[in-house]
Design a protein around this nucleic acid. Structure first.
Lengths: 203, 203
DNA sequence: AGCGTAATAGGCAAAATTGACTAACAACCG
DNA sequence: CGGTTGTTAGTCAATTTTGCCTATTACGCT
């Protein structure tokens, strides 16, 4: 949980603050932190003694807001977690992998087109990253490592863009999907023949 | 849901088959498919009319196994989902992003070391991918796009490796994290001074 | 002054996901 | 032949996550 980390620097905070900060980092994209998760996390962390409620004030008749701060125990736990994340590598789950593993179910033309389209989207996203990097808004108001963030995003995608084009070419070139000796009566084979001839069909 | 896709080519299958296939693709890493999820998904898809139970046989006194196959409706739905995944781009959620955003909480030395370590892990993983690509086990028994899979993994990581080294250098070089005019009394600033001097400390 | 919209806080029920557990049978092994 | 290990098939309770909902104040516009 990285909610913990956020509470730690922002010191006394209430849920809504955290929520806004996360949105401003557009963290909903790369972490799984929907609005509802935050309050749940705060309560759970408090139960575990990693956070502590500091106050509960009410302005007018709006929902009362509870303010939290981190306990020493929470700080320790945070550092443990943080180090774990820094030193370990876990290949991130990627929905595109799932999609790509069903390549034989896509007509070749469409698959190639989709890959080229993906390359373009990635290029566009890189452009906007580069634009951000050149703006001095970034350099004036944000810590440097935010810029490094963009660099990482770009570094990763450059390679993928090239891969998309290469692979699109291969697909169009008609390379057979299956190794020659593959038993032609098993699932893949039939599927593939279908999608070569008609696009994918149901039964 | 990509369970649907699996059922679709493997036609009549029971949960355990799916489970093994997914494990053999080591899909537990890049999709969120733990053993328990599968049976849940199968039942839910059946409720929705995308799958259909075909038989329930029992061998000896072992747990009865239910066999499923896909319905035409399920096939359509699958194609819709598949196309969505192919044409859309959603930056995959990555826990490392979360970790990196707390860079100022790490002592510089350690952060740099961790990044170099990460680069090495990535290199190692690439080596083993390359080994797989050169084995003819891969080319003899697996569809070609499995090889392309490895290519993608390599393409993505190459860029990241370089980034890790570059960034490690920057961190060690002592570049200040915060822009000059940053208000020195706010959260980040204090944190950073702490971690520059002592490593991170709790109050 | 009146109205629509946005921001402020947070709750809650339902869905998804996990991970550990069961319990029968097969297979090996000295 | 007794014991151990491995495979088969799936269940289940508990935790996580999601998405949408409520209700109040503030702000801008005409």
């Amino acid at each position: 949980m990285m909610i913990l980390g956020l509470v730690r620097w922002m010191q006394p905070v209430h849920g809504y603050d955290v929520r806004r900060e996360l949105l401003s980092w557009s963290a909903d994209k790369w972490a799984n932190v929907a609005p509802g998760s935050i309050y749940h996390a705060l309560r759970k962390l408090t139960e575990e003694g990693l956070l502590r409620e500091v106050a509960t004030e009410q302005v007018g008749a709006r929902p009362a807001r509870t303010t939290y701060e981190i306990t020493p125990k929470g700080s320790e736990e945070f550092e443990t977690l943080l180090r774990e994340q820094w030193w370990e590598y876990r290949p991130p789950p990627d929905p595109f992998f799932a999609a790509f593993s069903f390549l034989p179910a896509m007509p070749r033309e469409e698959a190639a087109a989709a890959l080229r389209n993906r390359a373009n989207i990635l290029r566009a996203s890189n452009e906007s990253s580069r634009a951000a990097l050149n703006s001095d808004w970034l350099h004036r108001t944000k810590p440097v490592h935010v810029a490094w963030f963009f660099d990482l995003a770009i570094a990763r995608t450059e390679g993928e863009i090239a891969w998309c084009e290469r692979t699109a070419d291969l697909i169009e070139s008609g390379v057979p999907y299956l190794p020659p000796e593959f038993d032609a009566n098993q699932g893949w084979a039939q599927w593939q023949r279908d999608s070569d001839r008609f696009g994918v069909r149901d039964e």
